[in-house]
Design a binder for these strands. Sequence first.
DNA 1: TTTTGAGTTGTTCGA
DNA 2: GTCGAACAACTCAAA
Length: 434
Amino acid sequence: MSKPLLNIFWFRRDLRLEDNRGLYEALNDDLPVLPVFIFDSNILDDLEDKSDARLSFIHKEVTAINETLKEKGSGIRTFYGNPTEIWKKILEEHNIKTIFLNRDYEPYATKRDEEVKKIADEKGVEFKLFKDHVILEPHEVLKDDGSPYVVFTPFSKRWKEELTEEDLISVPSALYFTNFVQMSNTPVTALSTMGFQTSDIEIPSGTLEDALLEKYAERRDHPAIEGTSRLGIHLRFGTISIRNIAQRAEKKSGTFLNELIWREFYQMILWHFPRVVNENFKKQYNSVPWRNDLNEFQAWCEGKTGYPIVDAGMRQLNETGYMHNRVRMIVASFLTKHLLIDWRWGEAYFAKKLLDYELASNNGGWQWAAGTGTDAQPYFRIFNPESQTRKFDPELKYIKRWVPDFQELAYPKPVVDHKYARERCLETFKEALS
DNA sequence: TTTTGAGTTGTTCGA
DNA sequence: GTCGAACAACTCAAA
């Protein structure tokens, strides 16, 4: 018996049919393409919230792809389980020439893909990876001696030098939709099958207005204003194309483009230095004696520190799965500097709560705030919650929105005095580094 | 090899 | 209220 020869496209963090590099390459090959998605139990098992909004979002997007493909007489095959085990099954069931996929730069993903590649190799199946998640990959922006940058500004300069027009051009995967395998449509694995429920948290739309780009530089730091793009989750799961966004940023807003370069900077750091997941980038900070007071950590998590701007941020996070970027810096500085709590605690809490959670950016941001990261800024840059409020929320609009009780008697007293905490932090770091 | 300039996002103090 | 300097000195990148 002979099963028909096919190609497979494996969707992961690229949940869109348009302008998808790996999918485009697959559809341009000379065989029908079977699209596949795996709900990875290794990842799902770590989700504490059984109605996790990110999983709901992914599920919705995979279902939308399935619906679109249904109109073409095709569909997406979905699975639930350990990817390597599932690939063994898929490779048994089908006669495959090539597996097409887009590269993922996280340590777990890299290892997973290597394992699957090995299984494919043993079967004589080709395994082709493409660049889709970033404009320039970790190995494409290096110093002249071939080593990676560890300071942002020279990295960004080099990034812009290396950038070509081609890097920003969309790939027309939609032109080749007739090349999908024709099959009777199969349903997407239900959330309940995996032990989850649908979340009712709303995800912001994946659109970017020109008006936002034009005013981005002046508006992005004010948390009471909707001046940021809210595209994080869409970039995370690939429901928008980075090429499309970067192309428009390049024309309209250097500040916004810079933020995209930060995203690639931290992806590059994570790729070259995967140890940062659990360790200080700068080893000399390993001796900082974090206080790690559980009660204070809990107060921070719950938005009960007695510092309105900090509490507003944490309450926004807890209620919506989102926190404005300016406020992320403030609460991170407060946790690590004022409370002297290990940045890894804060990072883990963000990972659990943020809809737009992205390992590379979250880790980079937290290490930056703690002073342990790639940025050589001195440790005595300690955010003052009050002056940050004066600068970025002068009318207290953001605070009033999230902490309406901030002037009431029952509102918590400051968990620690600012001046005292600042001096304690300076002393602690100074001592640790000496 | 040596030198030079620079480093996301800050705060406080004193003139 | 505004401004510049000090904070403390280090590492990185590139010439």
